[in-house]
Structure formats: structure tokens, C-alpha cells
Design a binder for these strands. Structure first.
Length: 579
RNA sequence: CGGGGUGUAGCGCAGCUUGGUAGCGCAACUGGUUUGGGACCAGUGGGCCGCAGGUUCAAAUCCUGUCACCCCGACCA
């Protein structure tokens, strides 16, 4: 491609709407343009990158035996009614009507469609297992689009679904996808970690998120450098403190005026925060949004409650719970703001963190203004409706696997895989006849890659950008080589540039030829900004057949004969283009 | 959905307090001089000052409403 023939425009100034490096550079390099909040157009150079990523995804999916199809973005409401998600999905779903008033949505995902296709096409166990995938636009009307394509309202996602006879087969498919995803993200040049993820109250057994590590990411993960443990903070298990071995002392009520926080109580009584019990009060709602019941959760005073774990323990959804109004709750349950403890509480569901069971002689609120109880013990003084791990694993806490202090990191979730089991196949009737002629539900898994998010996340990797612009990995670069011709119109330079251009093209290299009538500085700046991995500069020494050869990611430049430069370029492209 | 902020030329911004003919830098276009890291000189074009209403002789500026966009939070199969 000659630059003089293309629509090519870069921007010198940082666009006011962008904050993080990847978003700034995509806009400055002219790879994307915003159409509306969270809605973008891919410009020629950016679209080439997206297509490269898609191609990598295709190759890895095909290698695992998945087949590509393409479903409509428009999906009828009936399918979603069947799975129960038409009501459950909420305002994030773009809903539209056809001319006859029939409701449709712009697909936010495609479990229902794939299940529908498969139920009408599968009858026998002999047809299983198989996997289908597609790479299409997905639509989610996000409450808050952010950071360009990191969280956009319309994005490109590869989604695929596995269909197996049983749980064991499903886990084989899951493992295949785990491998495929690892290959995809490695080839795209991402630094990432697969982390154990939460899959909600009614999800399947297994889920992993693939998180590209990056300080601008929206997800937070906990990981261990001593072992393989890595999980989202919502999911990360917590190793309980060792049970106390001392005797239970008699419980006592003490006056603790004005000590509403854990810190204040601990200071007042001269205790460690770990010798106290923290109370958190909630109210839950049913599906219609009516108040259902009060919930009191208790964790050790120095711990942090993990909402996801609480919600899972209660078997409800995140939006069906909220902090309770303590005054309103007092009437019914006897709680007292700032002085609530598990003893004396009534008419509410009590959820106790598992480690409290083994700890002795703790201090808790007395459910009475300005009073606390000391020497409170589980079993003797109070019990729970549910005992489970409710804690958030914080940086420095012991690793649940090996006990070493864990680390936290931020990242961008570029992919997620999870087992669905029969969540969709049972309600939607996706069944088959097994060897014994019995009708069984199909076991499904679903797997997603955010292609457009990956596109942006690649740039945010520290090694893939610098102060001058993007540094594309060869595998996804819009072009492999850029020929920077210093002085178009100069006979020797024109001739040599053309020779190199044709030579590279004939070797299957993707070449951009900057033949614009611009000053050298502008050309160098643009070449750096758009991040083409190899630059061949045709300048003063064109007459003797000498060019300058430079890699975008390295500082040194070398003068080479044009033949050597072509050879070097072909070598490095061949070596690196597969990722 | 709550809090904060911004809408003025393609991009980045000033002007608004205290109403009086809409400005600057970059980009674009023309001519010239330049030519290995975002050149210089001279000239040119380009605006419904987000939109609607109001106050006023007069509104980018003051008032009311509304829309859009950005940031923090809530939310996120």
C-alpha cells in the first residue's frame, strides 16, 4: 500500500476524551474514531489489526476442531423467554421492535441461539461432541462505557460453545479451550494470566478469566508467586486463621460509649482488631424488587467482607441485595447501629464467616447502645444460618494454596471460559438419545474472547508502546514493513523504493510505502506512532543501493545494502509473524 | 442511577467574572525558501459559540430548560 493512495491521518495532540495510553494512541494514530459514547469506527489501519487478531483466533479454534458459523445479531425475544433471560438481563440489553411490534434484541451474547440451533440439529449421542463458534458484533448498553474499546457498547467478540454427552466430556472441551486461549493470547503478544473466576450463583463448576496484566485494567486479581494460585479477588479463597486452643471465658457486657467503629472499640478496650467481630447488615429483595429478608453478616474485625461470596452463599444475585437501613432494621431484629453483634439478634438470616467458628473470646456489639460483649464464642453464645468463607483476600494475606503472602495486580479481562452444564439445555430442551436410548440433556460450555478489547489491550502492555507511539507485535501489526522514502520524486529513491516494495510483496510481506510529499521528521514520527515493526529508510544513499534498516522496538539503525535489508526484513517477519 | 466536570473552526484551547462586530496554536489550502526526527516566511479559507426558550437596544457571555460527551462511584451474562 502506498500511503499517498490511502486515507491516512494522524493527530499530534492528545485527544481530550482519552486517558490511558492505548486509547490515546489508537486515536492519535488514526486507527479508530468515535461515533458515539462507547461506539467506534475502525479505520483502515486499525481494521487490519482486528482482522489479524480474528485470524489468530480462527486458527486456534479450528485447531481444536471448532467450526465457525455466523448467527444474526438480531435475536427474537422468544428464545430469551425460554431461558428466562429476557426478564433477567436488565437495561444492558438493547431491545428493539420490528414493524409489527415484535420484540427483538441486539445480541449481547448467543447462548440461546446456539442452543436453539443445536437442539434442532442433534438427536443422537453419535453426533456429540462438537464445538461451534462465531466472531461477531455484540451489543451491551453499558451503564458507563469507558476507556475507548475497553468497555464499549458495541464490540467484537468471538464466542463459542461446546456440546458434550456428559460432564466428563464437557471438561475435556473446557481443557481444549483453555489451551486454545493460552495460544491465542500468547500469539497476540499479551502478558496475561488465566485466573480462577466466579461464575455466579447459578453458573457451572469451572470458570477462568484470561487477564492481560496492565495497570489500567478494570479487574483486580490475586496471585501467588510461590505457587500457581491466581484468582479474581471475588473468587479467591481465603485461608482461615488457626483455631484458638484456649478455654472459653464467661461472656461479659461492657460499657463502650461512642465506639461505633471496629477501630474505636479495639482502641477503647485495648484489643487487636483481630479480636473483634464486625457486623454488616443487608436487606435482600425478591425478583419483583420487594423487600424479602434482613441479613446480618459477620467477619473478623480486621477482615473485609466479600460481597460476591455473600451473594453466592445466599443463592441470590448481586442486584438483589443492598445495605440495610439500621433504624428500620432495629424494630424487627434488635440490631443497633454501630453496636450490632450476633448475640441477641433475631428475625434475620445470620451468615458467619467460617474462621469465626474456631476463634475464642472475641468482642462483638451487644445490640445495645454504647455496649459491647467480650468473650463471645461461636456455638456457646450464638450460631448461624450459614457458615462459609466471606472474606476478601487482600494483598499480603496468606495464599490459600501455599500460605505465602499473595500479591494483587490489575488487568483487563480479554477472555473467559466457563462450563454451563445443563443450564440452557434443560430449559430449552437441547437433548439427545444416548446408547441406552435414554434422553439426556447436552452438557455445554461457553467461551468468549473480546477481540476489540484485545486489540486495545495489546497496546497497553508496557513493551508494546513508548513515548513515540505504538509498537505492534509482528503477529498483529497492520503492516510488517514500512518503507520511508525521504524524497519522493528523486529518481534514485523512487527506483529503489519501488524495487524494495515489489521484492517484499513478492515474498509475501505486507508493506506500507510512505511516498508522501512530507518532510522526513513527519514521516519518522508517523512511522513510530503507527508502530510498524520494521522500517526501511530510502534516502541519500539510494544511488549506491544502500538503505537504513531499523526495528521499531530497538533504538539502533544500520546501513545495509537494499538486498540485505530485504533479507533481514523477510527473516524477522517469517520468524515472528506467527506470534 | 448518584457526585463532579466540559461543550467556542478538523484537533487542542482562550474569551464568559464586568453583555457591545468571535480569537490563538496546530492542521488544511496557495506561493516561495527548505528537506534524515512533527521546518520557515507570506497569504487564504473555515464558526447557528451543543440545542431551545427567556432577560436586554444588544447574549458565546446573564437566567431557565434540555441534549451530548468525559471523569469518580454504583452496576457489569
Amino acid at each position: 500500500m502506498k500511503l499517498s493512495d490511502s486515507l491516512f491521518k494522524t493527530f499530534r495532540e492528545v485527544p481530550q476524551e482519552a486517558e490511558i495510553p492505548s486509547h490515546i494512541l489508537l486515536l492519535r494514530a488514526g486507527m479508530i474514531r468515535k461515533t458515539a459514547a462507547g461506539i467506534y469506527t475502525y479505520m483502515p489501519m486499525g481494521w487490519r489489526v482486528v482482522r489479524k487478531i480474528e485470524q489468530i483466533v480462527r486458527e486456534e479454534m479450528d485447531a481444536k476442531g471448532a467450526q465457525e458459523i455466523c448467527t444474526s445479531i438480531l435475536q427474537p425475544s422468544e428464545l430469551w423467554e425460554e431461558s428466562g433471560r429476557w426478564a433477567a438481563y436488565g437495561p444492558e440489553m438493547w431491545r428493539i421492535k420490528d414493524r409489527n411490534g415484535r420484540p427483538f434484541c441486539l445480541g449481547p451474547t448467543a447462548e440461546e441461539i446456539f442452543t436453539d440451533i443445536v437442539r434442532s440439529g442433534v438427536d443422537s449421542h453419535r453426533q456429540l461432541p462438537f464445538m461451534l463458534y462465531q466472531i461477531t458484533d455484540k451489543f451491551r448498553d453499558e451503564a458507563r462505557p469507558r476507556y475507548g474499546m475497553m468497555r464499549s457498547r458495541n464490540f467484537i467478540m468471538k464466542d463459542n460453545y461446546s456440546f458434550d454427552k456428559d460432564h466428563e466430556g464437557m471438561m475435556v472441551s473446557y481443557q481444549k479451550m483453555f489451551e486454545a486461549y493460552t495460544n491465542v493470547f500468547n500469539r497476540c503478544g499479551l502478558t496475561f494470566r488465566p485466573v480462577e473466576a466466579d461464575n455466579g450463583a447459578i453458573g457451572g463448576d469451572s470458570s477462568h478469566e484470561f487477564t492481560a496484566l496492565c495497570e489500567f485494567g478494570e479487574s483486580e486479581i490475586a496471585y501467588c508467586e510461590s505457587c500457581d494460585m491466581a484468582a479474581t479477588v471475588e473468587k479467591a479463597a481465603f485461608r482461615d486463621a488457626e483455631p484458638d486452643t484456649c478455654d472459653m471465658l464467661p461472656m461479659e457486657k461492657v460499657l463502650t460509649p461512642g465506639t461505633k467503629t471496629i477501630e474505636e472499640v479495639a482502641n477503647f478496650l485495648g484489643l487487636e482488631k483481630s479480636q473483634t467481630i464486625k457486623a454488616l447488615l443487608f436487606i435482600t429483595y425478591d425478583e419483583e424488587g420487594n423487600e424479602k429478608e434482613y441479613v446480618a453478616a459477620f467477619v473478623r474485625g480486621d477482615r473485609e467482607l466479600n460481597m460476591t461470596k455473600l451473594v453466592n452463599a445466599l443463592g441470590i444475585r448481586e442486584y438483589e441485595i443492598a445495605f440495610a437501613d439500621e433504624n428500620a432494621m432495629h424494630e424487627k431484629t434488635g440490631c443497633v447501629g454501630g453496636f450490632t453483634g450476633p448475640v441477641g439478634l433475631h428475625d434475620c438470616k445470620v451468615v458467619v464467616d467460617s474462621e469465626l467458628v474456631g476463634l475464642r473470646n472475641l468482642c462483638a456489639g451487644a445490640c445495645e447502645e454504647d455496649h459491647h460483649l467480650i468473650n463471645v464464642n461461636y456455638g456457646r453464645d450464638y450460631t448461624a444460618d450459614i457458615v462459609t468463607d466471606l472474606k476478601t483476600l487482600k494483598e499480603g494475606d496468606p495464599c490459600p494454596c501455599c500460605g505465602k503472602p499473595v500479591k494483587h495486580a490489575r488487568g483487563v479481562e480479554v477472555g473467559q471460559i466457563f462450563t454451563l452444564g445443563t443450564k440452557y439445555s434443560v430449559p430449552m430442551g437441547a437433548v439427545f438419545k444416548d446408547e441406552a436410548q435414554e434422553t439426556k440433556p447436552i452438557y455445554m460450555g461457553c467461551y468468549g474472547i473480546g477481540v476489540s478489547r484485545t486489540f486495545q489491550a495489546i497496546i497497553d502492555m508496557p513493551e508494546n508502546h513508548d513515548e513515540n507511539g505504538i509498537i505492534w507485535p509482528m503477529s498483529v501489526a497492520p503492516y510488517h514493513v514500512i518503507i520511508t522514502e525521504m524524497k519522493p520524486g528523486d529518481e534514485a529513491q523512487d527506483a529503489l523504493s519501488e524495487k524494495i516494495y515489489n521484492e517484499l510483496l513478492s515474498r509475501g510481506i505486507e508493506v506500507l510505502w510512505d511516498d508522501r510529499d512530507e518532510r522526513p521528521g513527519v514521516k519518522f514520527k508517523d512511522a513510530d506512532l503507527i508502530g510498524i515493526p520494521v522500517r526501511i529508510t530510502v534516502g541519500k544513499r539510494a544511488g549506491e543501493g544502500v538503505v537504513e534498516y531499523k526495528l521499531r522496538r530497538e533504538a539502533d539503525k544500520t546501513d545495509l545494502s537494499w538486498e540485505d535489508a530485504v533479507r533481514e526484513a523477510v527473516n524477522i517477519v517469517e520468524r515472528e509473524k506467527r506470534g
